[in-house]
Design a protein around this nucleic acid. Structure first.
Lengths: 148, 148
DNA sequence: CACACACCTCAAGTTCGCTCGAACTCGAGG
DNA sequence: CCTCGAGTTCGAGCGAACTTGAGGTGTGTG
């Protein structure tokens, strides 16, 4: 027989508070069945969904976007690899872009090494008023404070 | 002579609304001088600071954390490479971790192809949570449906 | 010098993602 | 059967990060 999880059990196993789980349900991110006494009982699949929500959130996605992605998962059966793969294909560009963004922030902080100039201050792309970098246009950096 | 930027100019060049700029100032993230008529005038350095705030936010950092980092920059002079490098050193682990997180989400969504297992749930290779517990209450690794 | 438009302050409102409290019910162990 | 911790709903509240609006002032152009 399928073991049904109580809200407390799911909370403990996912590290997400019961109140948050109810909220997610109200938002349509997860579903539950009810006992005769109206208490929620969760299928184990919900653990994966909740974990997915958590990670996606850390990556900077809103619950709305996550909802949209999860909506493509079947409700009636445990999602297959292909089900998740569909989400993957949809998100991949976004995730790649996000990685890129962080890498550039990291590299930029590391002294603008990427573009070969020696300092942020001297980098024409970042501080174009400076006489230091007259040549070329180099890689486009992050958010350029495009000052002529 | 130093050109002083109006709030509108800064808004246009950074893509951040004037209201947000005033908010940032109230929060101590940026500074401005005032004209006789009490209008804000910004030094060009503010463009870099604001851009920095934007990127850091996208990476998932709160204004509080950003404020803390920016607090290490000198107010009286244009920050040098070393000034930014200090922030870099402080943030690098965090940024690296964030990249790692996204990469794992991405790869995991790709169907756990790398390790050849069929279900997300069973995949331990992508879920190096075996170390998670050792670091106290640190971030739980990815999707840890440690079932069974 | 007039005039439009950019700017000012301050308070209140908005959205997101929850949390809390009140008041009540369920359900497993003794 | 009783108890008591875990569960329920509903509405209010909260913190972050802004936005909006009212009511008033500055400033650059014709």
């Amino acid at each position: 027989m399928e073991q049904a999880l109580t809200i407390g059990a799911v909370a403990e196993r996912t590290g997400v508070a019961p109140s948050a789980l109810r909220y997610y349900e109200a938002e349509g991110l997860i579903t539950s069945t009810r006992t005769d006494g109206n208490q929620r009982r969760y299928h184990r699949d919900v653990l994966r969904r909740v974990s997915f929500v958590k990670v996606a959130q850390q990556v900077g996605l809103s619950l709305g976007e996550i909802h949209e992605a999860l909506a493509s998962l079947p409700e009636s059966r445990t999602p297959t690899q292909e089900d998740w793969s569909r989400i993957s294909r949809a998100w991949r560009p976004r995730l790649d872009e996000q990685i890129h963004l962080i890498e550039r922030l990291r590299d930029r902080l590391d002294g603008c090494i990427g573009c070969g100039c020696l300092s942020l201050k001297a980098c024409r792309l970042l501080n174009p008023g400076d006489h230091a970098g007259e040549h070329g246009s180099g890689p486009r950096y992050l958010i350029g404070d495009e000052d002529e």
